[in-house]
Design a protein around this nucleic acid. Sequence first.
DNA 1: TTTCTAAAGATAATGATTATCCATAAAAAT
DNA 2: ATTTTTATGGATAATCATTATCTTTAGAAA
Lengths: 148, 148
Amino acid sequence: MADPQYRLEQIIKVLRDKGHRITPQRLALLKIIAKSEGHPSVEQIYEQMKADFPTTSLATIYKTLTLLKEVGEVLELNFATAGSHYDGNKPYPHPHVICTRCGQILDRKSVALAEISQEMARLTGYEITHHQLNFFGLCPECQKAGPG
Amino acid sequence: MADPQYRLEQIIKVLRDKGHRITPQRLALLKIIAKSEGHPSVEQIYEQMKADFPTTSLATIYKTLTLLKEVGEVLELNFATAGSHYDGNKPYPHPHVICTRCGQILDRKSVALAEISQEMARLTGYEITHHQLNFFGLCPECQKAGPG
DNA sequence: TTTCTAAAGATAATGATTATCCATAAAAAT
DNA sequence: ATTTTTATGGATAATCATTATCTTTAGAAA
C-alpha cells in the first residue's frame, strides 16, 4: 500500500502536467481515491464526497473519474454486476478475484501476462493497450452460507 | 469450428435433460447460436430471430440467453462497451482480444490458466467457477485509421 | 379434454451512465 | 486590478441495456 499523501501528490502532478485544474472538488475526490484501500464504487465515492461537499453532483464524480481514467491514474473495473469500481492505487492491470454473491473484490499480484500480451499482439496485429484478468467464484463466507 | 447441427443437438439435449421445453422460438434461437461464428450481440440475435418470428420479444431473447447461460451452453461476454455478446460454440472461458474502437472481438486459444486458477483458489479460499481474460487495444484496421 | 405450468409477448420499470445547459470560478490577457 | 476566456461544477433530463411484471398462450401430463 502506497503512502496516501505521496499518491495524492503523484496524481495531482499528472493532472497539472496535462493542463487540468485542481479544483477543491477534484482535490476532495483525489484524496478519497488516494487513501482508498479497496475498490470503491461510484456510489461509495459519492457518499464520501458529500462529507466535504454536500452539494456535489454525481455528474461531477463521473466526469472526474473519467478524467482520471484517461490520464491513467485510476483503473476502472466493470464486471457483469451493475456499477463500476475504481482503483486509485494500482492503476495498472492486475488480476482480481470476485465473489459473485457478495461482490467482494480481492487484488492479486500480477501474473506474468506481459509476454502473453506481446504474443497476442504479434499473432493478431493488434496494438494492445491493457488487459483484464478476473476470477469469479464464491468467497469463503458465502460458501459457508450454502447454495442458494 | 464445431458442426452447427451437432452443436444444436448438443444444446437441445442439455436443455431437455434439465427439464426445459424446446419451443419453436427457443429452437430458432438455438439455431442462430449454434451456427454463429463470432460473438453476436443481443441486438444481432434479435434481428435474426425476427426473420423466423417477426413478433419475437426482446424479453424472450434475454430470457433464453439467461437460461443458456445458466445451463452453461453459452458464454456471456461483457466489456465496458454497452451490450453483452454471446458465444454459443465455446461456452467455456477463453481469452479475447477486443478492439476498443470498432469493437471487433477475436477468440484466442486458452492460455494455461487452470493452474493459476487453482493457485488463486488455494490462496484466497475462494471456490472459483470461471474467469475472464481479455486484451484490449486497436485492431490493424483501426491503427491505419490513425489516432483520434 | 381438461388441467397444470412453463414460456412468450407486450410493456413498464430500473439503474447506471451520459448529455445538456447554465452558472461559476480559475487561469490568462490586457 | 480588471476583463476575458475557458474549464469545471451542478442540476436535471435523456439514453440504453436489462429486468420485472402481468397477461396470454401453448406444451406436457393426467
